[in-house]
């Protein structure tokens, strides 16, 4: 029997982690204990940012990572986080279908084999006031955490402020930041209704968490066990997608119960944001080159 360690970045009660634990149990049971997977949620074994490298170098056998976190390394990893390119669960699925071969190829070069992936709920905009157009966003202090969110702030006339995740709640409470782009889940988990008032369902993008296994370790797995793991992964992917959809609604209700206004963005705001999205898509294409263009073209042909 082998023991596999599976670090995950988000807290044990997060739906990604619960799904991962169900996957681990499925593999452990399905292989009759041949491969026993222990899940380490909440970055308790390895912090999120280091999980990819830990799998690559064989420190752990498998793990979960938000690949768009690695877009500095390769712009292709950011394909799932281009604002307003694929703004719904269905669009996101189509985009993934278009990107899958390229991403799997890229991961294979890094000694990684993809098992399954699950999208986060769609990203919406949080504010401390009513916002009906891009004009209204001018001068708002916006929490940015990477180049794309900084650029988004710049293009909408907001002031990007860098706040680390650990200080997010305090930053909102004290007015260091007044706005952010994130899923309903983040706002719900962080209880942002204590400081923020409005959530707009702009469905900017649906970033994905990828569960990957070290390719050397994968190639040593018996065919029977590979079959079990693949089946479990397929189930986990479907289950995770459903959980993500259910959770989206749940968190919107939660934000409402907390006292926030949760609503779709006005047509005027959406038009302005889509223009920003077009700019950012073309900028991404510049850095992602032909491979990136192939993905976007293939995705657009499916529409």
């Amino acid at each position: 029997a082998e023991k596999w360690d599976m670090p995950m970045a988000y807290s044990a009660s997060n739906f990604h982690s619960e799904n991962g634990m169900a996957f681990a149990k499925c593999v452990t049971d399905g292989t009759s204990g041949d491969i026993e997977i222990t899940v380490h949620p909440g970055g308790s074994l390895i912090a999120g940012a280091d999980i990819k490298r830990a799998i690559q170098t064989g420190q752990v056998q498998l793990g979960e990572r938000l690949l768009s976190g690695h877009q500095n390394e390769n712009a292709m990893f950011g394909f799932d986080s281009i604002p307003f390119l694929a703004p719904s669960f269905d669009d996101s699925a189509a985009l993934w279908k278009a990107a899958k071969p390229k991403i799997e190829e890229l991961l294979a070069e890094q000694n990684l084999t993809l098992l399954y992936n699950v999208p986060w709920p769609p990203q919406g905009l949080y504010f401390k006031k009513d916002v009906n157009s891009v004009e209204d966003m001018k001068g708002v202090k916006f929490r940015s955490y990477n180049n794309a969110t900084s650029r988004l702030a710049e293009l909408t006339g907001m002031l990007p402020v860098t706040i680390e995740a650990a200080e997010l709640s305090q930053a909102f409470a004290t007015g260091v930041a007044e706005s952010m782009i994130s899923s309903g889940a983040t706002g719900y988990d962080q209880k942002v209704w204590e400081s923020l008032t409005n959530f707009y369902e702009v469905d900017a993008w649906l970033p994905r968490n990828y569960i990957m296994v070290n390719s050397d370790i994968w190639s040593d797995v018996s065919d029977a066990n590979k079959g079990v793991i693949t089946t479990c992964a397929t189930e986990a992917e479907a289950r995770g997608l459903q959980a993500s959809k259910d959770y989206t609604q749940f968190t919107y209700d939660g934000l409402r119960d907390g006292g926030m206004k949760v609503e779709a963005a006005s047509e005027e705001l959406m038009t302005g944001l889509r223009a920003v999205g077009d700019t950012m898509t073309s900028e991404w294409l510049e850095s992602a080159g032909d491979d990136g263009k192939a993905i976007v073209d293939s995705y657009k042909s499916m529409q």
Partner: peptide, 11 residues
């Protein structure tokens, strides 16, 4: 060798 870059804005 992996050409590893920072995941934050400094890259």
């Amino acid at each position: 060798k992996f050409n590893e870059v920072s995941q934050a804005q400094d890259a």
